[in-house]
Amino acid sequence: MTTATQTAKKSAVHCRSVTKSYATAGTKVHALRGVDLDVNSGELLMLVGPSGCGKTTLISVVAGVLERDGGECEVFGTDFQKLSSGQRSRFRGESIGFVFQAFNLLPSLTAAENVSVPLLIQGVPSSRAQKKAKELLDRVGLSDKINTRPAQLSGGQQQRVAIARSLVHDPRLIVCDEPTSALDGDTGHKIMELLREVALEGERALIIVTHDSRVYNFADRIVRMEDGLIAPGSIDPTTLH
């Protein structure tokens, strides 16, 4: 496994034997049962597998919004669980961008205001944040929707706003949970193109959870999960092109 090219790549995510279980009504659901995962900078990794196999749980742990029960997990060499709650929030705010299946835009904010939120959270002055937000909206092809509220946008447009928001603070890792599954095939395809083109630049790493096999060919690498574990034998995305 230690070929020269792989060690030369910078590690973005490094997880070993990660476990996580949920306690519900007396029974325990073992969502992660010892997962190993590596993602490198500059790589688009797709996490696939049947519903309920633990994909969302895994990226939640990786993105530091959920505490793992056991194992190790580092993002850019930092273990979330060793940080205080405040440090954890700040690290997440600076290093990670989020794209959600349901877009999760604030309904009373305009597109530009929504995009500027990650910068506002970091304390960037509003005028500068707005300026940066407009640049990003331009990049995702929505320069004419700057002052539009989410309710007036189509699903695809909302997801573009969300992608602009995930990029505005220039994070090193972006996690996307089923970014295309609320969209029709064509729109989903365009969103994947956008993610590949705009999001995956420089040293940025992308983890995209999906069960939409039509978009597998956008991946650099595909990892399949099954019942809380990484399934042996990865899919080679090149065979799908």
Binding site: A63, V65, S85, G86, S89, R90, R92, G93, E94, F98, F100, N104, L106, V117, P118, I121, Q122
Partner: peptide, 10 residues
């Protein structure tokens, strides 16, 4: 969402 994007409890 704000919390995930880094907003602290404060």
């Amino acid at each position: 969402t704000l919390k995930a994007m880094g907003a602290t409890n404060l």
